[in-house]
């Protein structure tokens, strides 16, 4: 869930996402100086819209991927990149309707939010100071605008 009215564009989600998911040290002070530079999986679009992967039900990225690198976790339904098999063809980058998937600046793999599938709770929602990012189950999302 992203609540546009609450997002202040503080970029904290990006900062901690890169530190927690992408850095080696997992400590901000050290992560800043790491090379290759850690990459965030969530992006603050424009002034006030933090966006991460929607994990679409009919995901275009999975369909576009030629070798099954883009997969869905059967248990949780989360879409993720199996990095070792990525051939860097960037089909997913082109197919994503939200522009969430990006080529990694330092390695030839696609980077994408997997909603912290190994952590239990997404770090971006945990650190969001205004709770613009929240994790909640919505069954009525097709019928209700939010």
């Amino acid at each position: 869930m992203v609540d546009k009215t609450k997002c202040t564009g503080c970029h904290q989600c990006e900062l901690w996402c890169a530190t927690e998911i992408s850095s080696v040290s997992k400590e901000l002070y050290q992560a800043i100086h790491e090379n290759p530079q850690p990459v965030p999986r969530v992006y603050v679009e424009g002034k006030d819209f933090a966006l991460q992967c929607r994990h679409c039900e009919g995901a275009p990225c999975i369909e576009a991927c030629p070798n099954g690198t883009m997969r869905r976790d059967p248990e949780t339904g989360l879409v993720f990149v199996n990095e070792p098999t990525c051939i860097a063809c960037w089909m997913c980058v082109m197919a994503c309707p939200f522009g969430i998937i990006n080529p990694s600046p330092s390695m030839r793999v696609a980077v994408k939010c997997d909603r912290c599938r190994n952590m239990g709770y997404p770090i971006c929602a945990e650190v969001c100071p205004t709770q613009a990012l929240r994790l909640e189950e919505r069954k009525d999302y097709r019928t209700k605008a939010f």
């Binding site: 900062l15 992408s22 530079q37 850690p38 990459v39 965030p40 600046p105």
Partner: peptide, 10 residues
């Protein structure tokens, strides 16, 4: 303003 350690745009 901020200087973003992990993004090249800002």
């Amino acid at each position: 303003c901020i200087s973003h350690p992990f993004r090249d745009s800002n």
